[in-house]
């Protein structure tokens, strides 16, 4: 597998990457570039987000295509090692050992990250656990922690050593609203200068955090651009009305009693400014409604 050439601005790039599990095609010729800052991956369950992140985190190898991270090809032994030395990875399901305390777990991962000197390592473990707000419970067994706390333990281990590449698979899943806000703040301070790739189902996380967003649908990239550009896909396609319009692709009653619609608007519709979620729904709805074997060409907006 050859490294993608001409990667200058983008720290991480994939070109024509495919991955199959038996008869299931998880990724089908994915092209994407990710530069410094926070890059979001949006898509429904089964779209291939986790597979793409696992490939970028060197946990899986692509069946075909090229992967480049900081000018290195992670499909080779040396390349994989070089990438792992600059990587922090939060898997979708971390799979904690039930005997470990939060401290033990993060310490264990720190050893695997070549932090051999104990005192320095323990200082770093305390630092990252304090960053995610777990200083008071760091010696509790992970099995005794809540789901949100376990997620934060996972985030803490990914932050060890301030990695240049942070790959976070649904980091905000299971976090309450306050914790999600704290995570956003934390990412802003801890990932300065780094390339962050995060997958999420929370479009407001994308709007708040990401400079760049990629939408994956059925294993293919369907959008690549800024969150503003993604929201703009729904320009003129979002409106409010007193009654539900059956011709809309999607409609729901908002808190103030009006019905918010996404789809082809009727004449004299009361248009509203679209959000990232609206843009995503338009994109996903368009793909869902075509239902054809030939997908729409990917939308690329820089």
């Amino acid at each position: 597998m050859n490294a993608v050439t001409n990667v200058t601005v983008n720290n991480v790039a994939v070109k024509s990457v495919s991955k199959r599990f038996g008869a299931t095609v998880a990724l089908d010729g994915v092209d994407a570039q990710f530069g410094p800052g926070v890059n979001g991956l949006l898509g429904p369950n089964g779209a291939g987000k986790t597979t793409l992140l696992r490939i970028l985190a060197t946990v899986l190898a692509a069946d075909s295509g090229d992967v480049d991270a900081f000018g290195v090809d992670p499909s080779t032994g040396d390349g994989r090692l070089a990438v792992r030395r600059r990587l922090g990875y939060l898997p979708q399901e971390p799979g904690f050992h039930r005997h470990f305390s939060a401290f033990d777990f993060v310490d264990y991962i720190a050893i695997l990250k070549e932090w051999a000197e104990r005192r320095t390592r323990h200082d770093e473990v305390r630092r990252v656990l304090t960053l995610v707000g777990l200083a008071d419970v760091m010696h509790k067994r992970i099995s005794q922690l809540s789901g949100g706390m376990r997620r934060r333990v996972g985030i803490a281990q990914a932050l060890i050593g301030r990695p240049d590449l942070l790959v976070l698979d649904e980091p905000t899943a299971g976090l309450d609203p306050e914790q999600r806000l704290r995570f956003r703040e934390l990412l802003g301070t801890e990932s300065a200068g780094a390339t962050v790739l995060l997958s999420t189902h929370q479009t407001d996380d994308v709007a708040a955090l990401c400079q760049h967003v990629v939408v994956l649908l059925a294993g293919s990239v369907r959008f690549s651009g800024t969150p503003t550009a993604l929201a703009a896909l729904a320009d003129g396609r979002v409106w409010l009305a007193d009654e539900r319009d059956p011709r809309a692709d999607l409609a729901w009653v908002t808190g103030d009693g009006l019905v918010r619609h996404v789809g082809e608007p009727p004449a004299r519709a009361q248009h509203v400014t679209p959000t990232v979620e609206d843009g995503y729904l338009v994109l996903a709805g368009r793909a869902g409604h075509t239902g054809a074997s030939e997908p729409d060409p990917a939308v690329r907006v820089s």
């Binding site: 898997p91 264990y108 990914a158």
Partner: peptide, 10 residues
Amino acid sequence: PGGEASVATP
């Protein structure tokens, strides 16, 4: 013991 996070380490 470290789950999948272990695999992505040097």
